[in-house]
Nucleic acid binder design. Structure first.
Lengths: 210, 210
DNA sequence: TATTCTATGTAACATTTGTTACTATATAAA
DNA sequence: TTTATATAGTAACAAATGTTACATAGAATA
């Protein structure tokens, strides 16, 4: 674990902090689809992402979903951060989008290290910064863009985080992420195919020139 | 200033911190409409809100606006917090919705105090927590609600923060905040009036039983 | 008072998005 | 192979939202 840690967080954290993390942290490998955080659950650990992609979702009262953003290597979940303080419940759901490697930190350490290590403070603040900006980005998309543009950005983003120009999703899955209906997505995807931006297949979509 | 400070933040901060704030902070009274933070500007001060209401807005490339949330007594602006670290530009606009009293803190103190005072760290983290939750709330509204429900919530919220059941806004102003057109707002307001929830007047709206 | 400006009301229509229903086909299961 | 299920395509329609245009009335001002 210490090696994974150094490779991914060595430039961020002081040696003493890296040492502490390796002592109290737990290394885990989780599979695609693993539910890392559920709405309404209490947070006991803070995940540091070593590899893989995590999808962060919001849900409304009817159980309808909306994709908020993706977490990648070097990211951590801001919701975890804020939940550590107030003993509050999670407001979001986090699911491994791909197989992922993570280090779990007990939440008591979060506050302790914030007083002790400047690099930790910077990391935590920076994480908040990133998450807040991603939320702003999400707001921009849903408030200012129409569904066809949102879909296009979604496909780009998904292709980027998976580092693959083939998107393995059904129209229904995309519809859930964008909080619309399958028919709407099928209709818009067909338009994108007609103008040569993508090629549609059963269960996957090939990005051509977005 | 020290008295205003104690009244509003005395229960949050240690005495030594209150003392420091009163030494380096600047007390200001600003009028309604005062632009506290502009998109693209660099942040040099962090405002602690003593009284009044501040409106926080997002803007897209075409200059279209969207209300994010209101700040009230005891709040601070998270965007200021995050801008202090990376020397990054503001992503949002903050405007005094009412006359307001604030204490301005030089941003260098923010990081210094985070290492020094536990109460300051808690305050900063709590502020992030509140702001992130407000952003989630905003996302919920624009993603999951239709315009009539958003309008209703807007009127309630506006009434709550101003502590007044008379809302002094034109339809056009409301349309800007909700990022829609004046005609749409007029249409929906008229419906609300017809079912007895509000009473419309020129330049103001009376909340009856929302 | 006459004029101008601003805010509001409303009709008519366009566009976007959501819904229902049905079809076709690939894949998985019996 | 036959059957069942999941996925996708598409038409037809409904609802929500956006746009244009114009009328009316209050408020401000010449």
């Amino acid at each position: 674990m210490i090696q994974e840690l150094k490779n991914n967080y060595g430039h961020l954290f002081e040696d003493a902090l890296l040492q502490e993390i390796s002592e109290v942290g737990t290394y885990r490998e989780v599979s695609e689809g693993y539910k890392m955080l559920e709405i309404g659950s209490y947070v006991k650990n803070m995940p540091l992402l070593i590899s893989g992609v995590v999808k962060v979702l919001r849900e409304d009262n009817d159980g309808d979903e909306l994709l908020l953003y993706f977490l990648e290597k070097g990211d951590t979940c801001a919701m975890t951060l804020i939940c550590t303080l107030g003993q509050t419940k999670s407001e979001i759901r986090a699911i491994a989008e791909t197989d992922a490697k993570i280090i779990m930190i007990p939440i008591q350490k979060m506050e302790e290290w914030a007083g002790k290590y400047k690099s930790w403070r910077r990391f935590v603040f920076q994480s908040y910064h990133n998450r807040l900006n991603e939320m702003l980005d999400t707001i921009d998309k849903i408030a200012f863009l129409k569904m066809d543009e949102r879909l296009l950005k979604y496909l780009k983003e998904k292709s980027r985080v998976s580092n693959d120009n083939i998107i393995k999703s059904t129209h229904q899955e995309i519809a859930y992420d964008l909080h619309t209906s399958r028919v709407v997505i099928s209709r818009l995807l067909k338009k994108l195919e007609n103008i040569g931006k993508i090629k549609l297949h059963r269960n996957y979509i090939v990005i051509k020139n977005i």
